[in-house]
Structures are given as C-alpha cells and as structure tokens.
Simulated scan of single mutants.
Amino acid sequence: MDSALQSFLSAVPQAAAIWLTILLLLAVAVVCARLPRATALPAPEPDENPYAAEVESAVAEASAAAGRRRAEWLESQQAVDAAWTAYEQAEADARRIAAATAYPLMSRRRKPGENVDRQRYLHRAATELCRTQDLSIGQLNDVYAHRGWNPRLHPVQQEAALHAAVREHRLEAYRKAVAAEQAAWRSAEAAAETLRDLRAEAAAARLRGPASQAADQQWWSEQWTGAELPAAA
C-alpha cells in the first residue's frame, strides 16, 4: 500500500510537466494560427505581345513630338503677330515722315564740309536702325556702299528714305514669319496624324493578341523605317 502511494506521488510531477508541455504547444499553435499569413506575390507574366508594347512605346514618343510641334506652331503664331505689329508701326512712321517732306526744301549754297556731315548723319542713323533690327545687315551695307542711297541729301530727306527702308524690312520680316508659321502648322498636323495612326495601331495590336505577331512585325517594318520613326522627330 505504501509503495503504491509512493509510486503515485512520484509520478504526479512528471504528469504535470507533460500536461504543461502539451498546453504550451497548443497555445503556440493557436497564436500561429491567428497571425496573418504572407501572401505570395504572383510572378510577373512575360509580355506575350511585344509588338503591341513596341507600338505603345512609339505612341509615347510620337505624343511628345506632337506636343513639341504644336508648341512651335503656337510660338510661330506669336511671331507673326509681333511682325505685323512692327510693320504697322513702320508704316505709320514712314507715312508721317513722308508727309513732313511734302514741301520742297529751300535751295541754297552748301557750306564747305556740309556734304560730309550729311553722309555721316546717314551712316550714323542707318547704323542705329540696324542695331534695333529695324534695318537688315544687307540694307546697312547698301547704305555704306551708297547703293541706291544719296549721301548728299538733306537729313530730312534721308530720314524719309531710311524709314521707307524700315517699312520694307518689316514687311519682308512679316512675310518670312507667315511662311515659318505655315511650315510649323504643316509639321504639327503631320505629327498629330502620325500620333493618331500609332494610337489606332496600338489599340488594334492589343485586341488582336499575340497570334498575329509575325504579320504585325512585317507591317511595322514596311510602314516605319528608321528615319520615319516618331523618335527621330
């Protein structure tokens, strides 16, 4: 009897240790079950339609090119407006000075050296007008070479001739600005047309899928040479 009791009492601590171990393992399992599980990210699928990706890349480049062409066209429009304003001012000045020379000047004997003074005045006035871009370099050269210019005229008459030359220069500048604006408009329209075509082709390539990839690549090589790609714009 005593030996059985002693055996029971000696086995109690071992049983308690076993139960404590089991409870601890159960607690760890419960905690692990409540923790959020990391979701494995799916591996990125390779692009099965490289032709469509290539066309979409060309669309991005063509869009940037079209934006630049449009900005250049808007800038050229502003240049046309400025050139016309400058011409109108030159026209008004030329008319005003021409009206001042409507009456003939009194004829008198010229003083010694007066012709030299008149020539200096003409050269100095023409140089100043060229500095402010009211005369071209070619016109200034004509003044100094006296091609079409009489350096012996009275300063009032020279002033009228100079402003007539300014009016001619401003009119030519306006014509060049108009031509540049028209060229910029054609370039912007061509860039916009290219962008529309590429966008349509990119959408169609995505809809067709990879099945017609070989035919698409053939179309791309036929339609877009290296010099015609939007990236070169």
Score class of each variant (00 low, 15 high):
100 A>V: 15
208 R>P: 08
210 P>Q: 05
33 A>W: 06
36 P>N: 03
215 A>E: 00
170 R>N: 05
2 D>Y: 10
138 G>N: 06
141 N>G: 10
71 A>C: 11
200 A>V: 04
46 P>Q: 03
26 L>P: 01
191 A>P: 11
117 D>Y: 00
176 K>C: 15
135 L>A: 02
124 R>F: 07
160 A>Q: 04
61 E>G: 07
58 A>Q: 08
129 L>R: 15
200 A>M: 10
43 A>I: 06
207 L>S: 10
75 E>W: 10
55 V>G: 05
148 G>E: 07
177 A>D: 06
153 L>T: 02
126 A>M: 12
61 E>Y: 05
26 L>V: 07
213 Q>F: 02
127 T>A: 15
129 L>P: 10
103 Y>D: 12
213 Q>A: 00
141 N>W: 09
87 Y>Q: 05
83 A>R: 04
25 L>D: 00
120 R>Y: 05
131 R>D: 15
153 L>V: 07
189 E>T: 13
163 H>I: 03
200 A>Q: 10
185 W>I: 03
69 R>M: 15
174 Y>G: 14
56 E>R: 07
131 R>T: 09
36 P>K: 12
37 R>M: 11
89 Q>R: 08
183 A>L: 00
180 A>D: 07
59 V>F: 01
103 Y>H: 02
42 P>V: 10
34 R>C: 09
197 D>S: 08
80 V>A: 04
192 A>M: 08
122 L>E: 05
82 A>N: 09
215 A>V: 04
110 R>S: 15
180 A>R: 08
176 K>W: 06
223 Q>E: 11
221 S>P: 03
214 A>E: 01
112 P>H: 03
199 R>Y: 05
33 A>R: 12
184 A>R: 02
102 A>D: 14
144 Y>L: 13
36 P>I: 02
142 D>A: 15
31 V>L: 14
109 R>G: 08
215 A>I: 01
66 A>K: 03
166 V>I: 06
3 S>Q: 13
26 L>M: 08
22 I>K: 02
187 S>F: 08
132 T>M: 13
3 S>R: 11
116 V>C: 00
163 H>D: 05
158 Q>R: 02
157 Q>Y: 13
10 S>W: 09
220 W>G: 11
202 A>E: 05
225 T>Y: 07
155 P>V: 00
179 A>T: 10
209 G>C: 00
99 A>R: 11
127 T>P: 10
17 A>V: 04
14 Q>G: 14
9 L>P: 03
